[in-house]
Design a protein around this nucleic acid. Structure first.
Length: 108
DNA sequence: TCAGTGACTGTTT
DNA sequence: AAAACAGCCACTG
């Protein structure tokens, strides 16, 4: 039996390096659709998960790093993304549309 | 048990 | 165009 959280972790871990996805895309992939808040809630616990989940690859639909406040340091999320080739400016992912990775289409 | 809260999103004023 | 409202589901006090 896969829990909601485990499914979220599974999808996030499948996000290719240098790509990003959104809470809504994950929620839709899981079939919950509008339960995107739950995705965020799950990721809040990802810190105690093993193996760790690349939560920095998950942003809101505008490409804003709304979840950065939950990282050890607020700059860590941006640093991790830039380290993977994703440009971030003012908490917003640059070239978001191209970096966007939709599990509903790509993972399928 | 009820009420408040949250790393969101889509629809309606 | 910007702001407010309303769903969504799990967790905590």
């Amino acid at each position: 039996m896969e829990t909601f959280a485990e499914r979220v972790y599974d999808v996030v871990r499948k996000v290719p390096k240098g790509r990003i996805t959104t809470y809504g895309a994950i929620a839709k992939f899981l079939g919950t659709g509008r339960s995107s808040r739950m995705v965020g809630w799950v990721l809040n616990n990802c810190g105690m998960e093993d193996p760790p989940v690349p939560a920095h690859r998950v942003v809101n639909r505008n490409g804003l790093l709304t979840g950065k406040h939950h990282f050890p340091t607020e700059t860590l999320m941006q640093e991790l993304l830039e380290n993977e080739g994703v440009k971030v400016k003012d908490d917003a992912v640059q070239n978001f549309e191209k970096k966007f990775w939709d599990p509903n289409k790509e993972l399928l």
